[in-house]
Simulated scan of single mutants.
Amino acid sequence: MSGVIRHVTITGRVQGVGYRAWVHENANARGLEGWVRNRRDGSVEAVFAGPENIVADMIKACGRGPSSARVDNVQADAGTSDLLNLRGAGERFAFLPTV
């Protein structure tokens, strides 16, 4: 993996509206590595890794999400390879269990 890693938390009405599936589809379409999961507090958490401009575009898209979502906030911070490696071996972009 070359580029950047970003750890992203999305809040609003983002669970029960297909948000994780939307993230998975859009990240794969952009060729990004990483993962997405729900959090028990109602937010969605993701890690995106890849070229800086493509990761930034994905984060921007997360502010819109699927049409059934209502995004209140997208918090993006520097990520780490340890976070990226929470996905299973051989997975490019994964769904992780809720935490």
Rank of each mutant, 00 (worst) to 15 (best):
S2D: 09
S2C: 09
I5N: 06
H7Q: 06
H7K: 15
V8Q: 04
I10E: 01
I10T: 01
I10Y: 01
T11N: 01
R13K: 05
V14D: 00
V14W: 02
V14N: 04
Q15R: 06
G16S: 06
V17I: 07
V17A: 05
R20Y: 06
R20I: 07
A21R: 15
A21V: 12
W22R: 04
W22C: 05
V23A: 03
V23I: 14
H24A: 08
E25Y: 13
N26L: 12
A27Q: 09
N28V: 11
A29D: 13
R30T: 02
R30V: 01
R30G: 06
E33R: 14
E33G: 13
G34T: 10
W35T: 14
R37H: 14
R37N: 09
N38G: 05
N38R: 09
N38F: 06
N38S: 07
R39I: 14
R39N: 14
R40C: 11
G42P: 09
G42S: 10
S43A: 06
V44E: 00
V44N: 01
E45N: 08
E45W: 08
A46M: 07
V47A: 02
F48N: 05
F48G: 04
F48V: 04
F48D: 06
G50H: 04
P51K: 15
E52V: 04
E52G: 07
I54G: 07
I54D: 14
V55G: 04
V55I: 02
V55L: 07
D57W: 07
I59M: 03
K60A: 09
A61G: 14
A61H: 09
G63W: 00
R64K: 11
G65L: 01
S67P: 12
A69W: 01
V71N: 00
D72R: 00
D72A: 02
N73E: 02
N73H: 09
V74S: 00
V74Q: 04
V74L: 02
A76F: 02
A78F: 05
A78Y: 10
T80E: 11
D82H: 15
D82Q: 15
L83H: 11
L83K: 07
L83T: 14
L83M: 15
L84M: 13
N85E: 11
N85D: 15
L86W: 13
R87K: 13
G88I: 15
A89Y: 08
G90F: 05
G90N: 08
E91Q: 12
F93Y: 14
F93I: 10
A94C: 07
A94L: 12
F95A: 10
F95C: 11
L96R: 13
L96K: 02
P97E: 15
T98V: 14
T98F: 02
